[in-house]
């Protein structure tokens, strides 16, 4: 069984006060074991909705999604989600935040102590165990949230614009760090972002979503060598791929504008 994530034409409509919001519409995707896939698209095209649905946080209205061959209808231990913001619990220190999933799963946290320490060391956070989230920078907080997701060793990581709130330089560092973690842990990663540059640098395959309602626009295989040094983002081939994906997105927006269905996020009140 190759496809650990198999999304078949899922849709989700929210009932909001201003009428129904079609977040995603018949979106499909397949991710092989150990693969790194990115999903890009303009803001508000339902990328977060897709990941929350795959995590089993909310149901889809249509279509089916399978994780490890089983239909998703509740959260599973094999899946870890990393949120847009670090989403740390401010009343817990770093160690307690990192061991929070184990606590919820009623595991004996003490048994995992060594592994947690190792994971913290891997993201250069040794010595911060007793600090509280507010004492850490944004980049450090997001590193804690990565360790938290790895703490119970899920096979699949779903990442929802995890570095979107960080400044550009920190973001680049975090991307490189993430590639290192991926190589070491061999997880299957589905990474959502609105930054095409980031998607191309990180992923083997980039799914492009249309503006809302988000549906499949195109899939690009990223034919860049591995391992990818940071310098690769300054090479001609990298730029060409980024430009090609950008052209695709611009075209999607143009098409929606022609049809009069485009909802610009710059003027929208609904996220």
């Amino acid at each position: 069984m190759d496809d650990v994530i198999d999304v078949q034409k899922v849709s989700k409509v929210y009932a909001s006060e201003r009428g129904p919001v079609h977040a995603i519409d018949r979106f499909s995707m397949k991710v092989r074991e150990g693969d790194f896939v990115a999903i890009v698209g303009p803001s508000g095209c339902g990328k977060t909705t897709l990941l929350w649905g795959l995590t089993g946080l909310h149901p889809f209205n249509g279509g089916r999604a399978y994780i490890l061959g089983e239909e998703v209808n509740k959260p599973r231990k094999e899946v870890g989600i990393i949120f847009q913001q670090s989403n740390l619990l401010p009343w817990r220190n770093i160690y307690q935040n990192v061991s929070f999933p184990l606590e919820i799963m009623k595991e004996n946290v003490a048994e995992h102590e060594e592994r947690i320490k190792e994971l913290l060391d891997g993201v250069e956070l040794t010595g911060f165990e007793n600090h509280f989230p507010r004492e850490l920078s944004g980049g450090m907080q997001q590193r804690v949230s990565i360790v938290r997701a790895l703490s119970y060793d899920p096979k699949i990581l779903l990442m929802d614009e995890p570095f979107g709130a960080l400044d550009a330089y920190t973001r680049d560092e975090m991307d490189t760090l993430l590639l290192g973690i991926w190589k070491k842990t061999q997880k299957t990663i589905a990474f959502v972002t609105h930054r095409i540059e980031e998607a191309v640098y990180l992923a083997n395959k980039v799914y492009v979503m249309t503006p809302r309602p988000g549906t499949n626009s195109a899939v690009f295989d990223i034919d860049l060598p591995r391992p990818r040094p940071e310098g690769i983002t300054m090479e001609q081939k990298y730029f060409e791929i980024v430009a090609e994906i950008k052209r695709r997105i611009v075209k999607d927006v143009e098409k929606q504008k022609e049809e009069g269905v485009y909802q610009s996020q710059a003027y929208s009140t609904v996220t």
């Binding site: 929350w52 995590t55 089993g56 946080l57 509740k74 959260p75 599973r76 231990k77 899946v79 870890g80 989600i81 949120f83 847009q84 913001q85 989403n87 619990l89 929070f100 999933p101 919820i104 799963m105 119970y152």
Partner: peptide
């Protein structure tokens, strides 16, 4: 919502 989602994602 995000914190509730966090706990829920671990099966809380």
């Amino acid at each position: 919502l995000a914190k509730i989602a966090l706990a829920k994602s671990y099966g809380a």
